[in-house]
Amino acid sequence: MKTLYVEGDTFLHRLSPRVKLVSLALASLLLFLIDSPAFLVIALLLGGGIHASLRLGWRLSFSRLWPILLTIAAVTVFTFLLNSPGQALVVLLRLTALALFAAAVTATTSTGDFIDEVTVAARPLERIGLVKAADIGLSIGLVIRFLPEILTRYQAIRDAHHARGLKLRPLTLAVPLIILTLRNADEIAAAIDARGIRTQK
């Protein structure tokens, strides 16, 4: 079991989760509204500076960011090939800055705080009868909590392929991964019911 949260006592750790989440949402909007490479470079440096202020170290930072950086690299290459170098640069700067901001928020906000804030944000929807706010908060908390678990499970299946000398194929990777994930989801759902967590208002 892993968590994206990293314990610490930095300014961002002490900042209210609500302020962090609202700021991240506003930063995302701004990054997508402005195409100026100069502005995006400043945003990237700011994101890098904030991330560095967490003092996670290069190794931990890279291990947390490489999956998203790989995705950004792929999107950049496609943009370069299908559009123009200028647009590829904008995509690269924009997404990398956003990834750095988001990683800083997830590293300094515990899953419990995420759940509380999302639950509060969903209260207006609950008042008009659309959703149960606690369920929305719990769902998002579970996604944050169990995403790294799915990655660990994928690595175990990949290792099992290697151990048996089998070639990695999408189907033989995906099927056991889906089955194991669903089986775990059943157990987790039962645990949530058994602990009475969904009865909370």
């Binding site: 892993k2 908390g141 579970l142 645990a191």
Partner: peptide
């Protein structure tokens, strides 16, 4: 699978 949140006290 019973521990829903990563940090024990939470």
């Amino acid at each position: 699978n019973q521990i829903i949140l990563p940090i024990l006290k939470e």
